Amino acid sequence: DEDELTGILKKLSLEKYQPIFEEQEVDMEAFLTLTDGDLKELGIKTDGSRQQILAAISELNAG
């Protein structure tokens, strides 16, 4: 699971946030449920980064 998540972050060039997800024990299943508020709480402060992550999440959820 973590590897898939790392792959997604790398694709977005946001792998610098990978340790945050690891630290908070966010797995792929949890990742797919994250909201903008969750990402802010995790410490992802950049709007653009959150938008990219949320776009990836909705794409993955759309299947």
Rank of each mutant, 00 (worst) to 15 (best):
S58M: 08
I20G: 04
Q24I: 04
T46S: 14
T33V: 08
A62V: 10
A55R: 15
V26K: 04
S13Q: 14
S58I: 03
D3H: 15
E2A: 13
S13H: 15
G48M: 10
K16P: 13
R50L: 02
K40Q: 09
D47C: 10
A56I: 04
K10E: 11
L14T: 00
E59P: 02
K45R: 13
E41P: 02
K40F: 06
P19W: 08
S58K: 15
G37M: 12
L54D: 02
F21T: 02
D1T: 14
D47K: 10
F31V: 06
I20R: 12
Y17V: 05
E22G: 05
E15A: 07
G43V: 00
A30M: 11
Y17L: 10
D36L: 01
L54H: 04
D1E: 11
T33H: 13
A30H: 14
D3F: 15
V26D: 01
E4K: 04
E2T: 15
E59Q: 11
F21M: 05
G48C: 13
A30I: 09
K16Y: 07
L9N: 00
L39R: 02
I44F: 09
E29D: 10
L39C: 02
I8A: 15
L54G: 04
G7W: 13
I53C: 05
N61P: 04
D36Q: 03
E23S: 09
A30F: 07
R50P: 02
F31A: 05
G7I: 15
L14N: 00
I57Q: 10
L5H: 00
Q18N: 03
E23A: 12
M28E: 04
I57P: 05
E29S: 08
F21H: 02
K11G: 08
L39F: 02
G43C: 01
E41S: 13
K10Q: 07
L34Q: 06
D38I: 00
Q18F: 05
E29A: 13
L34P: 03
D27K: 08
S13L: 03
D1H: 15
K40D: 11
L32H: 07
V26I: 12
T33Y: 04
E29V: 06
E2R: 15
Q52D: 15
Q52P: 01
I57E: 05
L5C: 01
F31C: 01
N61A: 09
Y17E: 13
F21R: 02
G63P: 12
Q24E: 13
L54M: 10
L60W: 14
D27Y: 01
D47S: 10
E4T: 08
I44G: 02
S13M: 06
E23T: 08
A56M: 08
Q18W: 06
F31P: 04
L14Q: 00
A56H: 09
L12R: 03
L14Y: 00
A30Y: 08
I44R: 01
G37I: 10
D36M: 04
G48F: 06
L9P: 00
K11N: 07
G48V: 13
E29Y: 05
L39I: 04
L12D: 00
K10Y: 01
L39P: 01
L32T: 09
E41F: 05
Y17R: 01
G48I: 09
Y17P: 01
D38S: 08
G43P: 01
G7M: 15
E25I: 07
Q52A: 13
Q51H: 07
G43E: 03
E22N: 08
E23H: 04
T46H: 15
G63Y: 09
E59V: 07
V26A: 03
Y17M: 14
L54V: 07
Q51F: 03
I8C: 13
L39Y: 01
K11T: 04
T46A: 13
S58R: 14
K16W: 00
L5E: 00
E4Q: 02
D27S: 11
L34Y: 11
D27H: 07
D27G: 07
S13G: 14
L60Q: 10
I44L: 07
L39N: 03
G48W: 04
A55P: 03
R50F: 00
A55T: 14
E25R: 09
G63S: 12
L54R: 06
I20M: 15
M28W: 04
D1Y: 14
A56R: 09
T35C: 05
T35P: 01
E22F: 05
I8E: 08
E59L: 07
K40W: 07
L32Q: 10
L60K: 03
D3I: 11
A55G: 15
